[in-house]
Design a protein around this nucleic acid. Structure first.
Lengths: 350, 350
DNA sequence: CGAGGCTATTGACTCGAGTAGATAAACGTT
DNA sequence: AACGTTTATCTACTCGAGTCAATAGCCTCG
């Protein structure tokens, strides 16, 4: 039972205390802490380091931020951290930011533009060094532009470049086309689309990908259901598809979350998957691997995208020209499409 | 096309600029901004407010934090934000913190004590006003204690009070007992336990609840499988239960995430749920509502717990004595237990 | 009409750390 | 021994906002 006798410093230890203890000036302490712009004699540095350790000194980030004009914090604005896709994204971003010594300030906007504004203002006044802004679908870019004018910002989840703003996204169109092609390869000719209903008037790229694959195979457009990007939304949309005039034999679904709801609607209708209706979805979240049946899905490379997003907002050297990075997706074959392989050893994203 | 001609201030606007513009001293600006300790003549205040609006002034949070010694930020350390349970928790905490004007600094520890330490130190040097620390299971409280000595900290997910630390949790034992009693009510006599394997040596309260219900009905202990708190863990644990000497007719599972994996193991074994094996799980996450079949689960009141956690760390007036709040749980009946009701209109947690 | 009491406003100092410019000490050269 | 160099250290100012003590202006009452 070794009782470590660190007396908890009632008054926080400052640089001054360290300086006094080590018998040097405060400047030297800074130089040691930052391996800072001037050298310090090795012996002196050792004394300072000792003092720091003994007193338990930690530099005050607020003071640092004030002087340097950088808080080493990034803001992350998400529609909803309880959406597993964004939750996984947030985690990757936190890791990527951490790798650069940056901390993450989290904010949920509920996909609501005015809440987004509120958070953006709040983050700006908290002096974050940059903001990563995710949304389900594009809202008015102009509005955004005004807001974030003087704060490095990167838009997440943008398949297509937004003029005047850095963005990071996955190639929704190509990924969706891959997925639909795969269904076509299984012999399906009536392939429905279960699409997210964004606030945007801009057509989602995933919808275009679906059309691309259909067109190139000379197939007619299947039925379309539009619903929110939630399990509930997928469920309702799925019900509409099932009860529709002619039921499709396959559905391409714009997110895993919706696909989970869709599966439920199909199960309830007594349909078996993939025999009666095949399903392929989009995102590649962990949840998709453990649904029944496991979802074949288009994986977005979250970790890579997260790293790219962080790099895009970081004051990396000098003014990086606005980048628009679009990442390729990967089709993860599981059971819901009709492929037989039943991967008991999960492939990725445990 | 009304072009709003706000020239984006290249140099950030400071209090001084506002003061000059409004023709007052900097002190007055502060008084106006904070409705601060002295009054300002209405006419003057109006001029200052105008200046603030016109120049687009936002007080520098770093300077404020330096002077006041409070950043109005809370740190949140989670094992893993991509775990839906913690993701939902994080969201509720962000909202609760936001209600008090606090921002949330997010950190993932991977359930790893040394990473926890690292984050805690980092958060401390960032001058957060408090830390909310969640873990799957208790690790050495002493270690924690040393770390957080001078930073208001509240432990999350603690069913039992930890001496010397504030904590917030749900009544795991009573909740688990409720769940198991419900299974007993369905006539089951061989009820297995699929339990999380924490790093802790302390018996999980959910295990005790399971025992309580079994004992009070005079039933023997069913088989126990221990596995990590993941879908994968639940899957492996489920396989072990299915292949075990005698297969239980019901399983109480210590988390929804594991239950999802368990369902998969049961499906793969060709068992139907709840006919062959009934399942009740714990947490009440959104995911549990859309599994197939929908999970009967013990809901933890996340929003209430989040609010309590935030209140516990906030510098609320003066030194709140360390609180240990334990919240009651609620059994959400769905299909996996054997009840017939098939709620198409979800009850809560959409 | 001057003293006393208000109120509105201001100047100046502070928080903790970064760093330029001044200063001191040590060394090498001729 | 005198001088320039180099190296180590210190002094002092700065970042932006909060706030106390002092001050200026105004009103009221005796």
């Amino acid at each position: 039972m070794t009782e470590i006798a660190v007396q908890p410093p009632r008054t926080p230890v400052t640089r001054k205390d360290v300086a006094r203890y080590a018998g040097v000036s405060t400047a030297v302490v800074s130089y040691v802490v930052n391996s800072g712009p001037k050298n310090v004699a090795p012996a002196t540095a050792a004394r300072v380091l000792d003092a720091i350790r003994i007193l338990g000194y930690r530099p005050n980030a607020a003071a640092r931020a004030l002087k340097l004009g950088s808080t080493e914090m990034l803001g992350l604005v998400l529609p909803d951290n309880s959406n597993p896709f964004f939750a996984e994204f947030a985690r990757e971003i936190e890791i990527a930011a951490g790798n650069h010594g940056y901390a993450l300030l989290l904010a949920n906007s509920n996909g609501n533009v005015s809440e987004e504004h509120r958070h953006l203002r709040n983050l700006a006044s908290r002096q974050v060094d940059g903001v990563i802004l995710a949304s389900n679908s594009m809202n008015e870019p102009v509005t955004r532009n005004i807001l974030t004018s003087d704060l490095p910002t990167v838009l997440l989840n943008q398949a297509v470049p937004v003029p005047g703003m850095a963005s990071v996204g996955a190639d929704f169109r190509a990924g969706a086309a891959d997925a639909v092609r795969h269904l076509i390869g299984h012999g399906h000719t009536e392939i429905a689309l279960l699409m997210g209903a964004g606030t945007s008037t801009i057509t989602d790229e995933r919808e275009l990908g679906w059309l691309d694959a259909l067109a190139e195979a000379g197939l007619p457009e299947g039925p379309i259901a539009r619903a929110p990007f939630t399990r509930e939304g997928g469920y309702r949309g799925g019900q509409r598809l099932v009860r529709g005039a002619h039921r499709p034999t396959a559905v391409f679904c714009s997110s895993d979350l919706q696909a989970i709801g869709l599966l439920r609607a199909l199960h309830e209708a007594g349909l078996s998957i993939p025999e009666d209706v095949a399903v392929v979805s989009f995102d590649g979240s962990a949840e998709s691997m453990y649904s029944w049946p496991a979802l074949t899905t288009v994986r977005q490379p979250l970790a890579d995208m997260a790293a790219a997003a962080v790099n895009a907002v970081l004051p990396a050297g000098g003014k990086t020209p606005l980048t628009h990075e679009v990442f390729p997706t990967e089709l993860i074959i599981r059971r819901s499409c009709g492929c037989d392989s039943l991967p008991t050893t999960p492939q990725r994203n445990a």
